[in-house]
């Protein structure tokens, strides 16, 4: 498995301001250790996350994407995460249908007090991605040097 040897996945986690982001903060306060592969992006509600964010993240080089929000019933805005739930149940299936490994996209409910759950989830996702190796699907091809000039017919 030379492809995955020494590979450190890049993960972006869209975290709801009112729960998971606070939970991640609590994990830090408690000096919990979790893999540094994860980059936390704070959003006002998990319902703010647009499927486009996930596609764009894969395109720009992420190996895995997480969407984390409040447990159903706990949404700061009452109903935001119910929409999240439907939206990403579909999105998850669409990604698989388009050939993306299900291990690359995760949605989770993590409350502000569940620091340990945040740590465990990140560890689990990052371990899974380490086995999967780098993501190449949806990844944009970077033009380099003279190669970039070769276009011509039949792209």
């Amino acid at each position: 498995m030379s492809l995955t040897e020494g590979f450190e996945p890049k993960i972006i986690a869209f975290c709801c301001n009112w729960c998971t982001y606070t939970g991640a903060d609590l994990a830090g306060l408690n000096r919990m250790k979790y893999p540094e592969n994860v980059h936390v992006a704070r959003v006002p509600c998990s319902g703010r996350v647009n499927p486009q964010f996930i596609l764009r993240a894969f395109q720009k080089g992420c190996d895995g994407v997480m969407v984390c929000g409040c447990h159903p019933g706990d949404c700061h805005y009452s109903t935001g995460n119910y929409f999240t739930r439907r939206r990403f149940m579909l999105m998850k299936r669409m990604l698989e249908y388009n050939g993306i490994d299900p291990g690359r996209f995760h949605a989770r409910w993590i409350s502000g007090s569940e620091a340990a759950k945040f740590r465990d989830t990140v560890a689990e996702v990052s371990e899974r991605l380490r086995k999967l190796g780098p993501n190449t699907k949806y990844r944009e091809a970077l033009r380099e040097g003279a190669d970039a000039g070769k276009g011509g017919a039949g792209i």
Binding site: P72, Y82, R85, M89
Partner: peptide, 9 residues
């Protein structure tokens, strides 16, 4: 949405 939508997350 429905409160009792399937929950996979």
């Amino acid at each position: 949405f429905d409160l009792d939508d399937k929950d996979e997350f």
